[in-house]
Each structure stands twice: as C-alpha cells, then as structure tokens.
Design a protein around this nucleic acid. Structure first.
Lengths: 345, 345
DNA sequence: GCGCCTTGTGTGACCGGTCACATTCATGCG
DNA sequence: CGCATGAATGTGACCGGTCACACAAGGCGC
C-alpha cells in the first residue's frame, strides 16, 4: 500500500510493469485475464498492482478501446417520483455491471435545447437511455443520431413492435384499464380522467386504457381534462370537475395530480369517497398516508429502469446477459379514496 | 454538413487539419481560441470544422489535458425530494458550465460498500459532490482520498468553519428554530420533535435549532422521537405521540415524516390543528395540497445544489467565478396544520 | 533432427487530443 | 543593415491504456 502522505500521480501499467519486472503488455494481459500468462508471472504482477494501488484509468481505457462502460440518462425533472425511481433502477443495474451513470436534464422541450442536450450526452460516450414519457423526452429520443446505442423508456406502444426494439415500457394501458374497471365495478356510471401531458400528439396509453374500459362497459366517455404533472394542475382540474354534480369517479394520470384533485374536492365540500371516488397512478410513497389514502396502480419503475439498462448493456456488449430484468405487471392497490357512488347515482 | 447516411468514425482534429490544409496543432489553436492564428486561417479551419461536423472528443481531451469537466454526485436515494432537488440544482449549474454530471447511489452505509462507491466515483475523473445528510453520505465524505477535489452538502455545522471550507449548507438550524418559535408563539407549552436519522452520532442541526428555541422560551424539552426518512417512520412516531394527551405541537424533520404523523393523528382521532399542530420541513411540492395543508419551512435545495457546483467549479478551475450561487435563507410557510392549542392547555 | 504449432512475452503503432519546443517570416530598432 | 522580437505555424513526444504483430522457447510428429 502507498503510505506516503502527499498525493502522487496514480500508478500506470508501466509503473506496475517495471515494479514486477515485466513489460506493460504483460500487465495488460493480467488485468484482462488473458490465459497465456505464466502463473508465477501473474502472481508477481498482481503483487505489484496491489503494492502500488494501481487502478485502471477509465479515461485511457475508453480512448484506447472505444468502449466506455458508461450510460447517460436523459430525463426531464429528476424530482418527479416516477422519473427518480426509474433513474434509481438504472443506477442500480449499472452499478452491478460496473458502468458509470451520467445524467442530463431536459429543461425545455424546445428543439434546439433538446438537440444540445442530446449532443452533450453523445459527447460523454457510451450508451444513452432516454426517458420519453413527455414531449421533451420523445423529442430527445427522436434527435439521437443514428449509430449511437440508445434505449427509450416509453409509454405502452399502440401495437407491440415486431422483433427487437430498443424500448422498454410498463403496461400503462393495462394499468389504466384496471383502475377504470375497478371504479366501474363499484357502480359508477362513468369515470372522468385527468390526464398527464401527453408525450405525443396522439392519445396516450393511459388514456386509451381508460377509454377501452369505458367502451367495454358501455359507459359514456367524458372528455379528458388536461392536467400538468404536479399537484397544482390536479387542483385546477379538480375544481372544475367538482362543480359538476354528475361526476362521481375520477382517474388521475399520476398520484400528484390525484393529490391536487383530492384537495380541490375537499375545498368544494365534496367528500371522498362518499360522493366522489378518486384513483391515482404510480403508487408514490406518500399515497398510502394521505387522508383518505389513495387508491392507485403501482408501477414497477425501478424494474423498468433495470430493464432499460439491461437492454442497453446487451446492445453495448455481446457478452451481456440477454433479458435479465423482468418488469412486473401493474398492480391495482385499493385504498380509502374509492368506494361506491352515493345513492341516487 | 455530413449528409452521407451511414455512420462513419467521427472527424478528428487531423481530419479537420487536412481538410483545411493546416496542421493539427493549428486546429487545436482555433478550437481553444488561441490568439496567434491568422484570421484567414481561422476562417478556413472553422469552415472545415463545420463541414465535417467535428466535435472535440471529450475522452481524449480528458486524457491528454488531465482536466475532465465532469462532476460525480454521490447520494443516497435519489427518490427523496430534497436530494432530488439538490441534484437538479447541481445539474443545472453544471450544464451552464458545460460539465458532465455523473451519479453514484450509496445504497448501504456499510463501510466497504461506501468505499467502493467512492472509488468508482474517483475513477470517473473530475470532481466530487457528496450529499452528506445521512450516515452513508457522511461516511463517503470521510472516505474521499486526499487530493481529489470534493464538495460536501452538509448539515449546518456547529460552528462556522474558519476560512474556506469545501462545504455548503442550508441553515437548517435557523429553520428549525423558526418553526419551533412559530409553534410556541401560537401558545403551545412545548413542541415535540420527530427527527430524521442523524448524519452523525452528535445532535443534528435541526435538533439543535429546535432545542435552542425551547430553551429560550423556557419550555420543557421532550425527548426527540427517532423517525426514519419516509412517511412510514412518521406514522409510527405519530401513533406513539398521539397516545400522549399532553402533546399539542409536533415538529417533523421533513415533510414526509409530517405526512405520516398527520395520518397517525387522524387514525387516533386527534384533529389537526384543533388538538395538535404539526409542522414539517422542506416544503415538498405536495405539502401545500394536503388536508390540512402543511405548515413547513422551505429550503432552497436547488440553490444549494448550484452553490455546491459553484464551489467545486472554482476548486477545479482557477478561472471559474468565485461565489456565483447564493443560497436563500429558509422561509417559514404557515398553512393549515398549525394553530393555537386547544383550550385548557 | 527438422519443421511446426503452441505458449509466453515483448515491441511498435494507435486512440484523439495537449504540451513544449522548433522553425519561418515579417517587423522594429539601434 | 544586422539582429532581436514576436506572430504564425509545424513537429515530436506524451497521456495511459489497447491492439496487431514479432519473436523466443518448448513439445510433438514424422
């Protein structure tokens, strides 16, 4: 071990080589587990490595070999629970594979800004994971130059892509379908929907799952209310819906929106679940502790993150395991915020 | 512009050089804005750069120059609001300075695990920012090898460090002090405290601010209740406190804990703020929308993150601005969850 | 006993930049 | 007019690894 106090330049393979009395190439072979090295030689090299505290320089490795064992995650807003959990899952899997994780935040959905961010990520080397649940993310996914390995974390696609695709997703559509059916089964005539900003112009997967459940039940399909991501958007949407006495069940695009809706209903004097039932989406950690506690659909975000990394890992290295990270199916969690409609409905 | 479809090796400075009819060194000079390049030459080089779509290879730059324009953030749990916001602030400032941001998650506070994570971060090159609000973070900060530039985001230190220190902090102590005074001013006899896990064995800054306010008011000092980070911990602590009828005011180490406490009080049939007042810490986005909405202290987490980056930037580059990122002082936000104690107290 | 293949090891070039120094040419000044 | 000076540019080495290839020694078949 290096015991001298002052910082010195870290040992390189040539330092190790002279210390062990071999050439730098032999050291390289030992590091990389090349078979044809005499055991006694390997021994000496390993001893020298240990003594000098040698660590392979990641930068030099990346430059010389071309592979960089790094992933950059492009995402809007790391503050949001779902995004943060996906990131957590990616990091976890990356750590296990000893990959470095970089992050880039898409602050604006503006084309130029997105392109700049993608460029930065590309400069970092290695692979790319884009969280494409929102317009900025979708645009970023589209702006990735061909040839750069990339995996997108996307909404449930309308039709399952043929063959291998560089995407992972949780089954949002199924989740929305389940939540809507739950509310309908309680006896509600229909279910209103407060949407998260759609990632594309087209209808989001969550919206289409909701719609499908309504259609199957022969329930009327009210116009979805457009919310933002945060509770404030839910609050605004909730105030609007609270004014309509026919509204008895509301599905929200995520738990934060649901929180705002709950608050708005409270302010409007409409008891939950007595008069109105509310269901969220994501099962954020606080949702179980709200009053009333929130009925919601749990999504396996960290699993999604792990799967995204797994797919990218496979794209970057032939030798990586093929499908190591299953994503669990969405699970409806029934709590206090949903119940039968009031009598007379 | 490169219009050929298939991916080719990105252009290097030598490619640019031949295209412009100069040497690679001249290209390097142009890139780095060296003054002694004839304007006409610079012109030609810039044209070649543009035509070939040249971008400077970050890896090669890092290897050759030693500086890497990268920061790695070491943190526990990116899911927690405060941590995520700090990360967001760091990323924002880093982006502005065109630094790459890497993250490493401290999943366990185990010494070996922490050391491994610090090593990984060191291997990534560049500077390090450690979020040291919890035991894992504090241990990581301690394990950083000398000579590696590092900034810690820490709790308010007991005494202001002399001279320049590699730490940034929000004034937690002052914040806790303010919140406690607010509750005392409402007429409560004393204020109970549900603590977040302390970063060290010693008393945390938040605890000491609370204690100081009690002492100044001559209020009795109840034993702090140890919570965890999440709402579940707050819930457990809240159930305990709810059983004690003398408890009329509770300060919580963060908003998630407060949420759990609110829920526990609700389950125990103790109205808030009618019988018990609750205050949180952090002003998470959902706190304003709870019922009752939560009185809390807002901390400038993103500002903290920006300041941390600013300090590190300065440590890495002589030329960086000295103190560009002020951290705003904590601000008490009074909402529905705090009020006067019930009559008879 | 010779050639041939395999095993173990070393040498030189290279990845894409930067840095230190050399070189050329025009200019200013004594 | 000669020489020092500085602007503009080029050359070679280097950062710390990897890769392709050369080469010596030993075992084996014929």
């Amino acid at each position: 071990m290096n015991v001298t106090g002052h910082t010195r330049r870290p040992a390189s393979i040539r330092d190790v080589a002279t210390a062990a009395g071999v050439s730098y190439q032999t050291v390289s072979r030992v590091i990389n587990g090349h078979p044809s090295v005499r055991p006694s030689t390997r021994e000496r090299v390993l001893a020298a490595i240990d003594e000098l505290g040698f660590r392979r320089n990641a930068t030099a490795l990346a430059l010389a070999s071309g592979r960089s064992r790094a992933v950059t995650v492009l995402t809007a807003n790391t503050t949001h629970y779902g995004y943060a959990s996906i990131l957590q899952g990616i990091e976890e899997a990356a750590r296990a594979a000893s990959y470095a994780v970089g992050i880039g935040v898409l602050e604006s959905a503006d084309d130029a800004a997105v392109a700049a961010e993608v460029q930065r990520a590309a400069d970092a080397g290695g692979g790319l994971i884009v969280i494409a649940y929102d317009p900025a993310g979708v645009r970023a996914l589209g702006a990735v130059p061909a040839g750069l390995p990339v995996v997108g974390v996307v909404e449930t696609p309308a039709s399952p892509p043929a063959g291998e695709s560089p995407w992972v997703w949780a089954d949002d559509r199924e989740a929305a379908y389940q939540a809507t059916r739950h509310l309908l089964a309680l006896g509600h005539e229909t279910v209103h929907y407060v949407a998260i900003p759609s990632s594309t112009r087209r209808t989001s997967a969550r919206t289409s799952g909701w719609r499908q459940a309504l259609k199957e039940a022969g329930a009327p399909e009210p116009r979805p209310v457009q919310g933002s991501w945060g509770p404030a958007g839910g609050h605004a949407a909730g105030l609007k819906l609270a004014r309509d006495p026919s509204v008895t069940a509301i599905l929200c695009g995520n738990d934060d929106l649901a929180l705002g809706v709950l608050r708005a209903l409270h302010e409007a004097g409409r008891p939950v679940p007595g008069e109105v039932s509310v269901a969220g989406f994501d099962d954020a950690p606080h949702s179980a502790f709200l009053t009333p506690s929130l009925t919601t659909v749990r999504l396996d975000f960290t699993g999604l993150g792990r799967a995204a990394f797994g797919l990218l890992h496979r794209a970057l290295e032939e030798s990586a395991p093929v499908a190591p990270h299953p994503v669990s199916v969405p699970e409806l969690v029934v709590r206090e915020s949903s119940g039968p409609p009031p009598a007379g409905h």
